[in-house]
Design a protein around this nucleic acid. Structure first.
Lengths: 225, 225
DNA sequence: CAAGCCGGTAACTAAACGGTTACTTGATGA
DNA sequence: TCATCAAGTAACCGTTTAGTTACCGGCTTG
């Protein structure tokens, strides 16, 4: 009997694929392109991003990029979609309804701020996409349902708070989320011009911590009775 | 006596410059290029903006653009500088110290929101400049002093409010301004992705008015005792 | 009134860009 | 063991781009 029965496993006696890296590994190549593209688009925008630069950053070449993603625009859309999936997935794991309404909202504000802080590329991509009036996001079929969950959960927490008499009756879930996102997004995405014109380095840890507290304070002050 | 003595006036008997428009009018050409560039940069960012497109929009050609502004980067910086001068000049005319502290802050919030609403190109330019980490703004020598006035005046209003016992002691002028700007900037500059993912058209007048009231409410709620 | 300068035009150039083609390499299964 | 097909490479292509050059024409001034 020969060794033909072992075909189901990837492991082989000669040249295991793990040893010689980045050779014949479609998954790895694909992921590398996506990550490289995320950085390139985040740093340079859609118009400024270079396909050659993405290929080089990914340690491959243009042919593979076009093979896996079609063209520059489709690659950009995939990058954007993955970025949204990233934050919404992490957000879901919060379960802001588990604590008191006040703590829940504070938790969401803190999470959003820290996620923005740790994922500057997400903010950049949002900026780029809005510059183009959501031209590519609008084409996405994957993302519409991703966001109803957020508003739904937030709405429940607000309702509970109103019932308990700690939140004002006019508190609106979308407004609360936009408030939280506004305060985090603007501070971070505009830190460079702001630091320049006001002569203060906003990315300094002391200022970052002060703004984190400020976001929670403002958010709660705006809905507390 | 001949007509040589009239050389001081632009008016002449043959072909007054006003009749045949856009011919031999350096001021007009210069202004047209600046305005066209503002729109082109705002719509497409630094990487996406096309020099040919600017020239065409201005009703002239590239030669003039390079003649008056040097190159694409210098033109972009002039556009950015003019945009900042625009908002800060309008802001100065407010005189927020003339009314009560509470009204003064509300006034500033309303002004900022409405200015952002009426000048989407300003928001776009800020976004573009921040994508590039204020690379060009940092080179500007004109703008540093333009912003101390804003913080100074705001600081006075806050101090007055604290003395009167209507504002909390921890209210900080930079934080207050950033709060106001955050709420306006994020809502407008990210309206396209937000409208898409949340399925609500945020630019609708009813929503705009609601957010305007929300900004004033949040700003005052965050500093009132 | 002639000379020269300045506002303006259009065609051009070298480089960079997105995208493609022709080809090589290596794993798989009959 | 050899045919097949997917992974990967690199040179290439037509177009677009920022920036330049050569030139035109009317206004100002000595």
């Amino acid at each position: 009997m020969n060794d033909s029965g072992e075909h189901g496993e990837k492991k082989m006696s000669r040249r295991p694929s793990q040893e010689r890296t980045s050779q014949r590994d479609p998954e790895r190549t694909r992921a590398a392109i996506l990550e490289a593209a995320t950085r390139e688009f985040a740093e340079n925008g859609m118009g400024g991003a270079r396909v050659d630069a993405i290929a080089e950053r990914a340690g491959t070449n243009k042919r593979m990029l076009y093979h896996y993603f079609g063209d520059k625009e489709q690659l950009y859309l995939r990058v954007l979609e993955e970025a949204y999936v990233g934050i919404r997935t992490a957000e879901r794991a919060l379960h802001i309804g588990d604590r008191s309404p006040e703590e829940g909202i504070g938790e969401l504000a803190l999470f959003t701020w820290r996620y923005f802080l740790e994922h500057p590329e997400f903010l950049s991509l949002l900026g780029t996409e809005n510059l183009h009036r959501a031209r590519w996001l609008r084409q996405s079929v994957r993302l519409k349902e991703l966001h109803s969950h957020l508003i739904g959960e937030l709405s429940q927490v607000l309702e509970q708070g109103k019932k308990q008499g700690v939140f004002i009756e006019t508190a609106d879930p979308l407004h609360v989320y936009l408030t939280i996102a506004s305060l985090g997004y603007f501070y971070l995405s505009n830190q460079y011009t702001l630091s320049t014109i006001f002569g203060r380095d906003l990315i300094e840890p002391a200022h970052l911590n002060a703004w984190e507290r400020h976001i929670v304070h403002v958010t709660l002050a705006s809905i507390k009775r």
